[in-house]
Write a protein that binds this DNA or RNA. Structure first.
Lengths: 351, 351
DNA sequence: ACACCTTGCGCAAACGATGGAGCCAAGGGC
DNA sequence: GCCCTTGGCTCCATCGTTTGCGCAAGGTGT
């Protein structure tokens, strides 16, 4: 067990060659699977394989990569890990990478532009085979680096302009969510309180912009012109969201009849405020959240959620990579609506 | 923007050498920061730096790694990403790795022993500098691989026997959570329903085993002997947990007065069942969950949660690596108790 | 007997970066 | 005039794999 021996150096191809009496090239071709092409006899191959196994040989991928000019590493950069969406992306990415015999390298950059650059440079200098870029603050800068480094790249969940992009259909998802909450909201409430509100996100963010479009479109079609103050893009911080919803309620004299919450963190902020309100008031507000959280399904009031199809997003991205598509093009993937558990209205009776 | 040029080959040290009129070794030492040791003049250094910058040179780390016998890659393997605890671990790991100028490589293995082996072999063959092993089904096998490959390794959140381990103090955490729910449960309920129950987890899992110990210890001290059927280690699947809690309630004629839920997934399963019950019955059951989820704080009944100190776990692991500790030893980190929001009992009145 | 494949393998030159061991000139001490 | 130090570089072997080319032995067709 406790055996911190000086760790003799790992055996190399040459060691195996010496032990087996074959040349390094023969050993190499046997161990890298190209032996039939080099007409190595099955007998020799088997002998070499068994010696290599006995010696615990494993090929040095830095050397192989150097020689072959690739690395069999697949890169993914994303803003952060502790978020269901990105975690799901990572999970799918790993699966796809492994299916192609690549080693996934997933790095988060915390939405810090300098960190994004550093990380991408780092990955390029590792000779990464390709890079999937999910959620960068400056896609153009990253794209430029990749092109300079000769690294194929695909944007995920954000539209880039120098390479293919696979994004959620945010407009359609937002429209769907908006339809859903409008269908369920109480009509007939007079004044500003009778209108739906959109809360959270950054308008500079392409995803938020598209969602606002979807929201506006549906509201305009069903209820007429949308007032600018119905859209409160206050960022993603829970604390800020809490303050905004409190202020809104103050202005309106109560919660609005419908609320489109733009992200789970915004939803958290909203929650901290509304749980302090009388249950009847909460009941009067139909809530939609553009993000999914399974636990949120069990809250004592219904929450309509959108779940982005992360698996499909990643799958499409890999298809583009497999097909060696380099030209910019945009693929949109429809997200799913997750209805609230039907339990709410019947069991936790807040009336 | 749209510029899929043939991607001329990346410049190498030799290219920069040629352009600057210096030798490759001079360029190398300038660009890798060892130039003062080699007495290169500031003037030469600056000239080389500017040429390298203009050419967009970036060092090929496969070549460097091959030559130096290291990779500046830091490995972490974990069961999965879509879990708050592991996501937090990943986040801290990345931060620590970057602080040391290493590139984090985090790979999940889905608790599949074969995948674990494959992944570790893969990382070793990438000449990873060290490996942090979080949540493996067969730590011994992985440890053996690392030793054979000469890779320093540290176990995280699971005790290994051939290298240092940093684990949550599961016994203490469980004892704390148990104390908490016992303090709040209704006493005086007669029969089996008046006893606390432990639900979820795998007894073969070291963490679960320690938590059961903590639970038993506290219950035994306060309520006397613990019946074996008070511990239901039914794994982590929500569906299974749901079935078990339903069966338990059937047997007892109601929910027990206190429930220790061993993981968030188990909690999800329990939730799907108990939300179908009359609110009064839920009120009668004090729930503790050994895992943390912020949304769960907003459920209409209090949930006492334990949050593992992932940051401290990772920080200690890196300290051990920095100190080049190889001998087995065990470091325990105390987790935190997250009390429920005080709101529950007052606002969402379920009685 | 000669021109041919086919089989089975070895030689040696890369891949790009690194660092120990030089080499040469200028300056200083004796 | 000789030796030594210091500064400022260059040369070249090396890390472990891969792969284009080549070569010999044996078989086949004529």
């Amino acid at each position: 067990m406790n055996d911190p021996r000086p760790l003799r150096p790992k055996p190399t191809l040459r060691d195996i060659a010496r032990l087996s009496g074959a040349s390094t090239s023969t050993v190499s071709s046997v161990l890298s699977g190209t032996w039939q092409a080099r007409r190595i006899s099955e007998i020799t191959a088997e002998r070499i394989r068994s010696i290599a196994g006995a010696q615990g040989y494993s090929t040095n991928r830095q050397a192989r990569g150097l020689r072959r000019g690739q690395s069999e590493l697949a890169g993914l950069i994303l803003p952060m890990h502790d978020n269901r969406f990105f975690a799901a992306i990572t999970q799918s990415f790993e699966a796809e990478a492994r299916a192609r015999n690549l080693c996934p390298v997933v790095v988060s950059t915390l939405r810090d532009p300098r960190e994004e650059i550093r990380t991408v440079e780092r990955l390029i200098s590792q000779a990464i085979d390709f890079l999937v870029i999910a959620g960068a603050t400056d896609p153009a800068a990253i794209g430029a680096l990749c092109r300079a480094g000769g690294v194929r790249h695909v944007y995920l969940d954000l539209p880039g302009h120098d390479a293919p992009s696979v994004v959620s259909d945010n407009r359609a998802g937002a429209a769907l969510l908006t339809e859903t909450i409008l269908d369920r909201m109480e009509s007939g409430t007079a004044g500003p309180r009778g209108r739906p509100y959109f809360l959270g996100g950054a308008p500079a963010d392409a995803a938020t912009a598209r969602r606002i479009e979807g929201f506006r479109e549906v509201v305009a079609a069903r209820l007429g012109p949308v007032d600018p103050d119905q859209v409160i893009a206050c960022g993603y911080a829970p604390s800020r969201a809490r303050a905004e919803i409190a202020a809104l309620r103050e202005r309106l004299g109560g919660l609005p009849v419908a609320l489109f919450v733009n992200a789970i963190t915004v939803f958290e902020g909203v929650l901290t405020h509304i749980v302090t309100l009388p249950p009847a008031e909460i009941e009067g507000c139909v809530i939609g959240c553009y993000d999914h959280d399974p636990i949120a399904s069990f809250l004592p009031f219904p929450v309509h959620m959108i779940r982005q199809n992360s698996e499909a997003l990643v799958a499409r991205a890999f298809e583009l990579i497999d097909a060696e598509v380099d030209a910019p093009l945009l693929v949109e993937i429809a997200p799913d609506l997750v209805p609230p558990r039907s339990i709410h209205s019947t069991r936790f009776d807040l009336g």
